[in-house]
Design a binder for these strands. Structure first.
Length: 489
RNA sequence: CGGGGUGUGGCUCAGUCCGGUUAGAGUACCUGGUUUGGGACCAGGGGGUCGCAGGUUCGAAUCCUGCCACCCCGACCA
């Protein structure tokens, strides 16, 4: 069989890009850095959205929608925030075009200049906190637990499909609380929601931790994250949750009356995951034959491919296939019966493997005679024959087993590519391969120097940090625990 | 903004150094036939401003000048 995509081991970036294109997930747009998400890619994103949205609602949050445009002045209300985002903002300066002098095409009408420029949101804290000022008067209005599904724009210099695009889709939660403790609890709760989603839906193990000040969100007091390892040993920040303290409340003057009648600033959080999770999903599980999807996020969980020469054969196979499909649907499993006669079975096999469909069922004349079906699982590529009457039961079990298996496989990979470094030489070597736990003296200066020399960064200070006395890998200064280093996307 | 590279049917590219019939291949597409249990085969067919502009020449995808676009490596990445 001709390889549809390059090998992972030869050139990981090339493999990644080709896989996305061949599997029909996305492609580049005419505008540099932007991305067209194709129907199949979007179907996977929708599965993610549905699962996450339910989890947000289960934890008491409501969806709302805030505007795409933010007045320029809003951004500068919080000093750290504007500094963090100023360099990557798209700015709207005019509201009208007119026919050009030479009659060919259109030009910006200089008479239609905006009094105040508008920023295309890089994140929505400012515009949302401006609303919160009016929504919150009393402790009775708290907590305010809002999420929005939206697009944002960040004009990055260098982009990669799904991982870093100029425009991307995400959800951003923004909450306001009466007490610091409640806000901290919310921040950590949402980090747990993300970790739960990554592990139980995406089948991707993650490390929870807190960012160092250098990696902190612009405007936050503390930034928490989940970090996952990709198959090339690099880390991908897969979700973040920020404790904002009273920074935005003060910047946007959001105060409330306490039970005791005192006036106080509210405490805030914000948290988000984006279409970057699509990149994580691809790089966590896929192989040289294409995507490998966890059953819980597969738009098509089972595909049935008939093998036939004549219309009569197809008719007989269809009876069996449709009955099986109905049986699977009653178990809540999504099925596609691909009875197209315009593509051959071998072509379909390769195509569905590329798309990562977890289970493939093939039914041909031989099966009809023997009363069997061929069942192939995507994760291990194992094929086996099963009696027709027990096939649905077996596939139902496979949904669970594949989900578990790819999680275990990813965990094992992370284990094998995680190490502790105790000397600088050891560190430099190990950090080329994967996650490295090492001692750090706690200074931003050292962090920066390590980054400059190795391109590795501190991904987080893990919650389950190994507490032990040691010396900084770079300076030899004393340290009380190991932090997680890796090269990152 | 630095360093490197590439622009030739939808896609991947050869041809450019050393100018010379009507610009090629693979793949994809269309038609017909044989096929159909791992991306089929045979035959025929359609599809090209050779990135753009200018120049040199009897003659330019090829040489010269200028411009544009895209990709990779870095800077950037809350």
């Amino acid at each position: 069989m001709a390889k549809a995509i390059p090998s992972r081991s030869e050139d990981y970036s090339l493999w990644y890009n080709e896989l996305i294109k061949k599997a029909g997930l996305a492609e580049n747009s005419p505008v540099r850095g932007c991305m067209v998400i194709k129907p199949y890619g979007f179907a996977i994103w929708e599965k993610m959205q549905q699962a996450l949205d339910q989890m947000f609602k289960d934890t008491g949050h409501s969806n709302a929608y805030f505007p795409l445009f933010i007045p320029k002045s809003f951004l500068s209300r919080e000093a750290d925030h504007v500094e963090g985002f100023a360099k990557e903002c798209a700015v709207v300066t005019h509201y009208r075009l007119k026919t050009s002098e030479d009659g060919k095409g259109v030009v910006v009408d200089p008479d239609a200049k905006l009094e105040e420029e508008l920023i295309v949101r890089p994140t929505s804290e400012t515009v949302i906190w401006d609303s919160y000022k009016n929504w919150i008067q009393s402790y009775r209005d708290l907590p305010l637990l809002i999420n929005q599904w939206a697009n944002v724009v960040r004009w990055e210099l260098r982009t990669r499909l799904f991982l870093r695009t100029t425009e991307f889709l995400w959800q951003e939660g923004h909450t306001a609380h009466a007490t610091k403790q409640e806000a901290v609890d919310e921040t950590l709760q949402m980090l747990d929601v993300y970790a739960d989603f990554a592990e139980n839906f995406m089948a991707m193990p993650v490390i929870k931790g807190v960012k160092t000040p250098a990696e902190r969100f612009a405007g936050a007091v503390d930034t928490y994250c989940i970090e996952a390892i990709m198959q090339d040993g690099k880390a991908l920040q897969s979700g973040t949750s920020h404790f904002l303290g009273q920074n935005f409340a003060k910047a946007f003057d959001v105060k409330f009356a306490t039970k005791e009648g005192k006036e106080e600033y509210v405490w805030g959080t914000s948290w988000g995951v984006s279409t970057r999770l699509m990149g994580a999903l691809i790089m966590a599980h896929s192989d040289d034959d294409g995507l490998v999807l966890p059953p819980k996020l597969a738009p098509i969980q089972v595909v049935i491919v008939p093998i036939f020469r004549t219309d009569e054969e197809l008719k007989k196979i269809s009876e069996v296939a449709l009955k099986m499909a109905a049986g699977l649907k009653t178990k809540g499993i999504s099925v596609k019966f691909d009875n197209r006669d315009t593509y051959k079975p071998g072509w379909k096999f390769a195509e569905y493997e590329l798309q990562g469909v977890p289970v493939r069922v093939a039914i041909g004349p031989r099966d009809l005679e023997k009363g069997t079906v061929e069942i192939a699982r995507r994760d291990t590529k194992e094929k086996s024959f099963h009696p027709l009457d027990s096939a649905v039961e077996h596939i139902t079990w496979l949904m669970e087993d594949i989900q578990t298996n790819i999680y275990n496989r990813a965990s094992l990979f992370r284990e094998e590519n995680t190490a502790e470094a105790n000397t600088w030489e050891e560190f430099k070597e190990l950090v080329e391969k994967g996650f490295v736990y090492a001692h750090w003296d706690g200074t931003e200066e050292t962090e920066e120097k390590i980054k400059n020399e190795t391109r590795a960064t501190i991904r987080c200070i893990p919650f389950d940090q190994k507490k032990e006395e040691g010396t900084c890998i770079f300076t030899g200064a004393p340290s009380s625990g190991r932090v997680l280093f890796a090269k990152a996307y």
